[in-house]
């Protein structure tokens, strides 16, 4: 009997801990990022080279986008939100590497990211506004809306997770079906479309997380 493609693809075990393909791919991405950044930014210069200049452009573009949404200094939020975008870009684009599957195509990775975003929203909300004022906003505009507000917090995080997972998983299925039906070269346009979808999903996930955090810190209405 064929196993479900939605099931975790366990590659090996470290003791009792099963190491899935998503985890292994994530480690590979982390290793790539570490090596690349160490090589590119070992000695950052004022007169930046092409790689450093490209990295500065990417970072400053993210900072600009965050500033527009948060309407405040974006640098405290950059480690979480910037890392979210860059990691999702790399993870989603892992589909173009032969033999690799994007970690976001399995529910555990979007769930982990959504969990971190969920916790970060409350962390930043309490940190910026204080515990009392932050928790009080769940009673607004009417205390009777408290259950709905709590449910809204959960569902929006759930939808964030499912959106990313559904898009990337469905794209994986489409590629697999096209390869199965049409051969080797026909899926290439779908792979190019996958690059676009991966970047768009990374952008959507990051922007939504930013909006949630902005709502928590009082910058925008959720």
């Amino acid at each position: 009997m064929e196993t479900s493609p939605l099931m975790p693809d366990i590659l090996f075990y470290i003791g009792p801990v099963p190491i899935s393909r998503a985890v292994a791919t994530t480690w590979a991405l982390m290793a790539f990022m570490a090596v690349f950044l160490l090589a590119a930014l070992r000695r950052p210069a004022h007169d930046a080279g092409p790689v450093q200049a490209a990295l500065e452009i990417v970072v400053l573009a993210i900072v600009k986008q965050l500033r527009e949404i948060l309407d405040r200094d974006p640098w405290p939020f950059l480690p979480l939100l910037g890392s979210l975008f860059l990691f999702l870009c790399l993870a989603n684009l892992a589909a173009v590497v032969p033999g690799a599957t994007p970690p976001t195509g399995h529910i555990e990775t979007p769930a982990a990211l959504a969990l971190i975003v969920f916790l970060s929203v409350h962390y930043f909300g309490v940190r910026v506004r204080g515990a009392g004022p932050y928790l009080r906003h769940y009673l607004e505009p009417n205390p009777f809306l408290l259950p709905l507000n709590v449910l809204s917090e959960l569902t929006r995080i759930f939808s964030l997770m499912i959106r990313l997972f559904g898009n990337m998983m469905s794209h994986e299925f489409v590629i697999a079906i096209v390869v199965f039906l049409a051969g080797l070269l026909v899926p290439i346009p779908f792979l190019l479309l996958g690059i676009l979808i991966g970047i768009i999903q990374a952008y959507i996930f990051t922007v939504l997380a930013t909006v949630y955090i902005a709502a928590a810190v009082g910058a925008v209405e959720a």
Binding site: P8, V23, T26, E108
Partner: peptide
């Protein structure tokens, strides 16, 4: 897979 979920959280 809760192990994967936990590992991915730590990884992120």
């Amino acid at each position: 897979d809760w192990w994967t979920l936990g590992l991915q959280t730590i990884n992120f």
